[in-house]
């Protein structure tokens, strides 16, 4: 049975695309057949984060408009044979696709994939409506900042109104040094406020910048963020993974990433 997950946040720049790329890659590495869909029409990014920007021929709008078959638009990942990307159109805008068309396309994709991951655009307008239309569950990404949390709350409200069965929270870019100092909300502070189940905490990690530069998701590669995304993938699959204690400070992580930098 396939599952359709929308990755959303409300606010821009909190890590939706990074989360989509890493969760998709992680699930594919665990043997699942995964389709990533970039639903941000006009501002596509998932292709560059995945390092697949040179392979795009057709896109999501071509599929819904019937210019090509679904299969022609799907790009196979460089490293993971069970991972595919459906890129979005760069030269069109959100109104090129309707929620009904999205549902129709996803219904077809469900037959071929175990997981379909939709990277949602920022905002709560048509792009958001398109992205959530065909989804079963949601990953809401936020950072421990007032603006991102406020937007996440709004999004969660909208998802609940759409009767989403499962809404899980990803807290991204947590800085343990600031939390320790009392200058950043901790993961439990954020969960307290949003009252939604937590599926992962991703520490602020410079390796994300490096991985995006290279177009290679870092899930599972031993970096702090890589480990965190791997844990999220396991939890998506329903496995119990204990949460790392980020309140203890960064010394351990700094040491770990220090080793990797030397190598």
């Amino acid at each position: 049975m396939s599952e359709v997950i929308v990755v959303t946040s409300g606010k821009g720049g909190v890590g939706k695309t990074t989360t989509s790329a890493n969760v998709g890659t992680g699930l594919a590495r665990m043997g699942k057949k995964v389709c990533l869909i970039d639903t941000d029409i006009g501002l596509r990014n998932l292709d560059v984060v995945m390092g697949l920007e040179n392979r795009i021929v057709y896109n999501l709008v071509d599929v819904v408009e019937g210019n090509c078959r679904i299969k022609q638009a799907l790009i196979r990942d460089k490293r993971n044979p069970s991972l595919y990307l459906m890129p979005s159109a760069q030269t069109r805008d959100k109104s090129a696709v309707t929620p009904e068309q999205m549902i129709k396309m996803i219904t077809h994709l469900r037959e071929q994939f175990d997981y379909i991951i939709l990277d949602c655009p920022a905002g709560i307008e048509q792009g958001f409506r398109n992205a959530i239309a065909g989804a079963d569950r949601a990953l809401v990404v936020t950072t421990p900042e007032v603006s991102a949390i406020r937007d996440a709350d709004r999004i969660i409200g909208l998802l609940e109104a759409e009767e989403f069965k499962q809404i899980d929270l990803v807290i991204n870019r947590l800085r343990t040094d600031l939390v320790k100092r009392g200058d950043m909300m901790s993961a439990s502070d954020v969960v307290d406020i949003l009252a939604v189940s937590l599926i992962g905490v991703v520490p602020d990690d410079e390796n994300i910048v490096i991985s995006t530069n290279q177009g290679e998701p870092l899930v599972g590669n031993g970096t702090p963020a890589g480990i965190a995304f791997q844990n999220i993938c396991n939890r998506v699959l329903g496995k119990e993974v204990p949460f790392a204690d980020f309140s203890k400070g960064i010394s351990f992580w700094t040491r770990v990433s220090g080793i990797f930098h030397k190598v």
Partner: peptide, 19 residues
């Protein structure tokens, strides 16, 4: 008050009126 406490208090009030 730590800035985290300030943020939490502000958010709590803000979200009540938002919701």
């Amino acid at each position: 008050k730590s800035s985290k406490e300030v943020a939490k208090d502000r958010l709590k009030i803000l979200l009540i009126s938002d919701r």
